[in-house]
Design a protein around this nucleic acid. Sequence first.
DNA 1: TAGTTAACGCAAACTCTCTTGCGTTAGCTT
DNA 2: AAGCTAACGCAAGAGAGTTTGCGTTAACTA
Lengths: 187, 187
Amino acid sequence: MQPVRRPGGRTARVRTAVHEAVLDLLREESWDDLSIALVAERSGVHQATIYRRWGTLSGLIDDMVNEQLSQGSPVPDTGTLRGDLEAYALKVADDVASPMGALYVRAAMVGSRGSEGEVYLMNRGLRLQAMLDRAAERGERPPTLLELMEVVIAPLYYHAIFFGRPVGPDHARTLVDRLLSLRGSPG
Amino acid sequence: MQPVRRPGGRTARVRTAVHEAVLDLLREESWDDLSIALVAERSGVHQATIYRRWGTLSGLIDDMVNEQLSQGSPVPDTGTLRGDLEAYALKVADDVASPMGALYVRAAMVGSRGSEGEVYLMNRGLRLQAMLDRAAERGERPPTLLELMEVVIAPLYYHAIFFGRPVGPDHARTLVDRLLSLRGSPG
DNA sequence: TAGTTAACGCAAACTCTCTTGCGTTAGCTT
DNA sequence: AAGCTAACGCAAGAGAGTTTGCGTTAACTA
């Protein structure tokens, strides 16, 4: 007989308090200084509670990433391929600059997350593919999903990681232009 | 009066032993399990020595990254733009799959390294720019440095981080093709 | 080659992270 | 509304991580 879980009320409050404390601290302190002790102090949740629920900092961060991913932010549907791509590029550029974006990249790097991350990646891939399919049905000539990831998304991440700042809206549009001109001028 | 440093002989041996132990461990253990105690045991260097010289794991990793970066691996010079780009892309694809590559990305993310990292990035940028300039002098029509980074290098990193595996030689060449076709067919 | 002392090995002491038992609070069920 | 117990707070204790003093080794200098 498994114990009956109680996800509501207090438990949920504790969880969001801890999550927000982590994001707060990442905005102020360096990554190395982040510790469970600090998170406990900032959130007002006792250390023992954090250790019992998440075990380690990595476990806590995995939980945050998985929650964020499970939100399943919708893919844009503006009516035109260019509109969809630009909206999506701007959103990614924004996301990757946030502390959550850094957490996401780190989680991908250490690779200790469970299968949820991969499930999410597949789901997001499917949604993006659907976005491209809609364009094809309208008679546009969309790129492949791989091209979208390589030509637009990868540079967005690269800038954020190595240049320490996200790309601006103009540059994001430049990336979309580049993607759309891959096939040459549309017939 | 500052103490006279002794970088040679034993000190250098200890340093390389510790560095190699870290790379060894990263090939086997997960990132989270890495600890100074493990590094000491594997390298045969006493814990106290590691603490005295590097202080923390992050400090040690910064030292490794900085040493690697200061090596200044030469940029290819094959005689043709395509040859240079393909050679460079293959090398980056290889590097990014190694433990050192992961350390490098992590160091860039945590951003705690000193100015050496930025100095290196500038130096590498200058060398790559020189590579592109050579092509221009030969009458070829090279891309800009930014285009090279975005179209070729960024996807290489993206694949390694999010797909968990580096791109193969064929795909690396595809990226170079894409870069070279940016300007349309050369006149 | 001999002297000086930086760098290392060792071990004890110390600090902090993490675990665990127990009493209290508050979801969830009936 | 009352009972049951998951989830939390608290504090003591175990354990791992880090520091420090001292003797030894071995670079560097003269």
